[in-house]
Amino acid sequence: MKAKRQRTALLFLLPAVVLLLCFMIYPLGKTIYYSFTAWYNFSAVQTFIGLENYKDLIRDPVVKTALRNTAILMAGVLLFQIGFALILAILVDGVRHCFKFFRTIYFFPIVISATAIGLMFTLIYKYEYGLLNYFITLFGGEKQVWINEKTSIYLALIPVVWQYVGFYFVIFLTGISNISSDIYESAMLDGIRPVQKAVYITVPMLRSVLTSSIVLVVSGCFKVFDIIFMVTNGGPLDSSQLLSTYMYQKAFARGNGGYASSIAIVMIVLGVAVTSVLRKMLQGGEEDA
C-alpha cells in the first residue's frame, strides 16, 4: 500500500522534474560550459579558453560597479521595501474604515508590469520632456539632469522599491491578522499605547514572516532587471549597472555569449551563497529567541 502511494506520488512529481531538467538544469549546465569558452554572436563555434572569462571578470571595473550597486539595492530594498511595507501594514491594520480601499491602493503597483513602471519613471526623470522638470519650470526653476553618474542607482531604486512594497504589505497584513486578538486585548487592559503595541507585540510576533520576506527580498535583488533596463539601461557610464543588465548587454547587444555566461554563473553562485548565509543567520536568531 505504501509502495503504491509512493509510486503515485512519483508519477505526479515526474512532469515537474522533466520540465525542470529541460528548462533549468540543462540550460544551467550549458551556461557553465559556455562560461569557459570564447563564444561570439551566438555562432555555432565555441572555443574552450579555460578560466579566461573569469579572469576578465575579476579585472572588469563594471563588474565591481555592478556588485556595489547590487549591495546598494539590497540595503535599499531591505530598508524601504520591508520597512515601508511593515509600517503600512501596521497602520492599515489599525484603521477601522476603508481597510479594503487602502489594501487595494497599496497592492496596486504589483499588478502593473515592471516595464510599464520603468517607462513611467523614465518619463518622470527625462530632462527635456520629463514630468519633474515640467513642474520645476512651471514654478520658475531651472531644469535638472536627474539621472547622472551619482544619482542613477538611487533613482532607479525608487521604482524597484515602489513596485514591491505592496507585495510585502499584503504578506505582513496577513501575518498580523493571524496574531491572536487575545494578546492585544490583554495588552490594552494593561494600558499599552499603539506604538508600544507595534514594537512589543506585532513585530516580534511577525518574526517568521519577516524572516521569509527578508530572504525573498535579498534573493530578488539578483533578479532585478526590467526596471533598471528601462530607466537607465545601466548608464550613464555604467553607474547603475547590475550584474543582470550587464550580462544582458554583453550577451545580446555585444554578442559576447561566453563572457555573459560567466557573469550569469557568478550571479547564481552569489545569489545562492548570500541567501543561504542570510537564512542561516536569521534561522539561528530565531532558534536563540
Binding site: K126, Y127, E128, Y129, K143, V145, I147, N148, T232, G235, P236, L237
Partner: peptide
C-alpha cells in the same frame, strides 16, 4: 551636446532637432 546627452534616447534626439531645439 544636450545636457542629458549621456541618457537621452534616440527618439528624443530626433524630436529635439525637429522642434528646432
Amino acid at each position: 551636446f544636450p545636457k542629458d546627452t549621456m541618457t537621452i534616447s534616440e527618439d528624443d534626439i530626433r524630436l529635439m532637432f525637429k522642434e528646432g531645439k
